[in-house]
Design a protein around this nucleic acid. Structure first.
Length: 826
RNA sequence: GCCGAAGUGGCGGAACUGGUAUACGCGCUGGUCUCAAAAACCAGUGUCUUUACGGGCAUAAGGGUUCGAAUCCCUUCUUCGGCACCA
């Protein structure tokens, strides 16, 4: 008769962790007889210590995995480490250690922490992206992309984090700051490697439609990020230079109202345009100044639009009008053509700039209800729908029609062409860092960029490289790494010294898990065909764009190589909420973290898992409460005690027909719990309400007295067994122990069948009907099920309380919701 | 500014397709046990009113639809998330 105590829990948890590990019970292989289910959580950066966010993420995943196992699925549930990245370098600088050594030590710690949480991983598939056996395939993928023209090198202005001394992808710049160190990002002209993700823009957008089981908001975020917009590229001739200046607009209906044209300061035509002009110095000055302002400042600080006249004019193709060409900071080089036609009457930005610079206005759309808009009265741009005016043959059309007609007309007359514009840009993957995958390219003066021959892979990251965090890519200092012979012509050549962004590594790890030990190929096609797609993916919302978009891109690439048969990698996506303490996100910098390890050593992994699942639905934020875990502990202790004290090994059995009132009640609750919890676990993962139902069942069991009756005792036994089975995915250690005590099974509870319920047991002799008068609840009645309106009327109107409320009043209506409610309207 | 999500006791949160608002847990109050405390167990716990029975009022605020609204519609407010000089 053991008591549920800290020591006992420690003994039990260690015992079963050892049992699972020694027998490798979560190891899976293809099994054509069983349906597969692939559960995956976003793998961690191995910082050494797990935090509550990890605990929550992985506990949710573990419950799903274990539930699916009990349902008889062949469950793949792997774990690994996103092991390249800057923290290892920072640690190396700080402690003067080798990043590899530091990383592998952290991985060992992480693995131990996962073990202590009792997660059901197939450890045989474990991987770390910093292993040459993994990053070799990063390099292979890169070369395949290079061969297909999807990886290319380009010189351009890139996002540069001066603190991390490396470039960043657009997705890594948040509010003009570096996603990792939060410092301001600059622009810098560099030659860098890009992946042509834009090749897949349309598919990435379209296939969002396939993702029925993704949160809507994630899909919307991706849709906005991809940012497709339809419009017209209009050709403005610039007489001065004999050049055509293309301009993109989504509002061709306003073309007759264009009164000037604006170029981005970085626009390549600017230099030509001002050459020899009296404005040359002024414009050069302005361009220089604008370039030197950091992105975040240009976005946040002074929002007043600044610009200068170039001295040149452009011709509006629709009416031959000459309008001035300006350069202004409110036009972005990165979007569209880097130049716009300005319509101050119908675009608020143009309006503000025009007012600042006293540029002319012309209304071309009038409010159809009150067509009295005048240029001189305007306080802001008119951006609503309306009717075309001052627009030649298009006058009188609604602007929606105008938009279509004018666009088609310009396209036909070759004044412009119908175009689609995307916000999504190619993915910059070069990083001037050490701890990452070397980009497997060699530069030869004669042959250009030449990939490392496939049979020479991997290009191993050299050891003993000095990492200072300063002076550019550390590999650049490593002579024997840099100097090589060109694989094509054999002449002296140089190796690329940049490494890959770590998001490259994590864009395909879910495929590698399918055959993670395969050293002949990137992954086994046959294994991937069986396991893919991931059925349930779980991770933080912070990856809504970055990682999830890149992974979708990679999957489509592999599909086009003929290596996978799916369009999309993740069938269902669950984004778990953050863990808060005192209303704030738990974080090291806030100093409000709770160490999972400390909680485990006091309460055990089971109580921690239970609390985290009970406190909030998985998608919501979770407020950590030190007292709350006491409640989980108390509940587990009650289950434990029930199994010790109330469970009695006996031969007797019972059937539904044998049961009397209170027994029937308990049997009903037991069956209802199975039904309710199964539903909660399947639709939307409502673990919190599933657990509360188990608490309700335990409360009923505690009140129930078997009193030595063998049939009642059999019912008590069955109820306890049901609780333990239903609880097993949540708190596996305690449940294994209790299950073994009660049943002495041959295998783990993880593979014991999930219980089923008997619909008959849910039937009731009487049902509760609520009686309302004028919509207000006045009394409750126990009546036979399926009572007719007449029967109910008979019973209810006789009731004293009801009488009091309806006395002397005319009954207008008698509304009946069968077996539920009656409303008397008087 | 645009797009999206959400506002329910002292707290975390329940409430299926409109049908008993506040399940379950935490906290709190009282009690049993104890010399005492902790633990455990039992009872109570939205708010106002009433000795009590009973009533009135409550799901961010206001209005509407309905026999009946936390749930549907409109207006407003607040919080959170994303995008943002995207032409």
């Amino acid at each position: 008769m053991s008591v549920y105590s800290t020591n006992e829990i420690k003994r039990v948890e260690e015992k079963w962790q050892k049992f699972w590990e020694e027998r490798s019970i979560f190891k899976v292989t293809q099994d054509p007889k069983k349906e597969k289910y692939y559960v995956l959580e976003m793998f961690p950066y191995p910082s050494g210590k797990i935090h509550m966010g990890h605990v929550r993420n992985y506990t949710i995943a573990d419950v799903i995995a274990r539930f699916k196992m009990m349902q008889g699925y062949n469950v793949l549930h792997p774990m690994g480490y996103d092991a390249f990245g800057q923290p290892a370098e920072n640690a190396a600088i700080k402690n003067n250690t080798d990043p590899a050594e530091w990383t592998y030590r952290c991985i060992d710690q992480m693995r131990e922490e996962f073990r202590k949480m009792g997660f059901s991983y197939d450890w045989d598939r474990e991987l770390a992206t910093c292993d040459a056996q993994y990053y070799k395939w990063n390099q292979w993928i890169f070369i395949k992309m290079f061969e297909k023209g999807l990886a290319y090198k380009k010189a351009s202005a890139v996002n540069w984090c001066p603190s991390c001394e490396t470039t960043l992808a657009n997705e890594e710049v948040i509010d003009g700051q570096c996603w990792r160190c939060k410092n301001d990002v600059n622009q810098k002209d560099l030659e860098q490697w890009y992946l042509r993700i834009t090749e897949y823009s349309q598919q990435l957008l379209d296939d969002l439609g396939q993702l029925e089981n993704w949160p809507r908001r994630v899909k919307l975020m991706q849709e906005n990020w991809i940012g497709k917009s339809y419009g017209v590229e209009i050709f403005f001739k610039v007489p001065k230079m004999d050049e055509v200046l293309p301009v993109f607009t989504t509002r061709p209906d306003t073309i007759f109202g264009a009164t000037y044209v604006v170029l981005a300061p970085e626009h390549p035509l600017v230099e030509n345009l001002i050459k020899g002009s009296s404005e040359e110095e002024k414009v050069k000055d302005f361009v220089e100044k604008t370039k030197n302002i950091s992105k975040s400042l240009r976005m946040s600080g002074d929002k007043r639009k600044k610009g200068v006249f170039t001295g040149a004019y452009a011709i509006n193709p629709v009416n031959g009008e000459e309008i001035p060409v300006w350069v202004a900071d409110y036009v972005l080089m990165e979007y569209g053509t880097g130049a716009i036609m300005a319509v101050p009457t119908h675009d608020q930005r143009d309006f503000l700039f025009a007012r600042e610079q006293a540029l002319p206005l012309r209304i071309v759309i009038q409010d159809s209800a009150r067509p009295d808009l005048k240029e001189e009265d305007m306080q802001e741009a008119y951006v609503e729908q309306g009717v075309q005016v001052n627009s030649a043959q298009f006058d009188g059309l609604s602007n929606e029609e105008g938009k279509k007609k004018i666009a088609e007309w310009m396209d036909k007359e070759q004044m412009g062409k119908l175009t689609v514009n995307w916000r999504l840009r190619d993915w910059l993957i070069s990083r001037q860092r050490y701890w990452g995958t070397p980009i497997p390219m060699i530069y030869c003066d004669a042959c250009g960029n030449v990939p490392e021959p496939e049979d020479e892979l991997p290009v191993v990251l050299p050891k003993d490289v000095k990492i200072t965090g300063e002076g550019g890519s550390p590999l650049l200092q490593c002579e024997e790494f840099v100097h090589v012979k060109c694989p094509q012509c054999g002449q002296d050549a140089q190796r690329e010294t940049d490494t890959m962004a770590t998001f490259f590594d994590s864009s395909w790890y879910y495929l590698r898990y399918c055959s993670s030990k395969d050293d002949k190929q990137v992954f086994d096609k046959d294994e991937a065909a069986y396991w893919m797609p991931v059925d349930q993916y779980i991770g933080g919302i912070e990856h809504a764009i970055l990682h999830l978009l890149y992974s979708r891109f990679f999957t489509k690439f592999f599909r086009d190589l003929g290596l996978v048969g799916v369009d999309e990698p993740f069938d269902r996506l669950l984004t778990q909420g953050m863990v808060l303490k005192n209303g704030e996100v738990m974080s090291k910098s806030r100093g409000n973290t709770v160490d999972p390890d400390a909680v485990i050593s006091k309460y055990g992994a089971d109580a921690l898992r239970l609390f985290i699942l009970f406190a909030a639905p998985p998608e919501d934020q979770l407020e950590w409460n030190d007292k709350g875990i006491d409640g989980s502990w108390k509940f587990l202790s009650r289950v434990w005690n029930a199994a010790q004290n109330k469970f009695k090994s006996i031969e007797a059995k019972y059937s539904l027909a044998d049961l009397e009132k209170d027994s029937k009640e308990l049997e009903r609750e037991r069956n209802y719990s199975i039904k309710k919890i199964s539903a909660d676990m399947t639709g939307g993962y409502k673990f919190n309400t599933a657990i509360s139902q188990l608490m309700i069942l335990m409360n009923k069991l505690d009140k129930f007295q078997a009193g030595g009756d063998p049939k009642k005792q059999a019912l008590v036994n069955e109820t306890i067994k049901t609780v333990v089975l239903l609880l097993a995915p949540f708190t596996p250690h305690v449940c294994e122990e209790l299950w073994q005590q009660m049943e002495q099974p041959d295998e783990s509870i993880a593979f014991t069948s999930w219980p089923e319920y008997d619909e008959k047991a849910l039937e009731q002799d009487t049902v509760l009907v609520v009686a309302q008068v004028n919509g207000k609840m006045r009394a409750k009645f126990q009546v036979p099920p399926n009572s007719s309106k007449e029967q109910l009327q008979e019973i209810i109107t006789k009731d004293e309380t009801i009488q009091r409320h309806i006395q002397g009043k005319l009954i207008k209506k008698f509304i009946v919701v069968p077996d539920k409610l009656v409303n008397i309207v008087v």
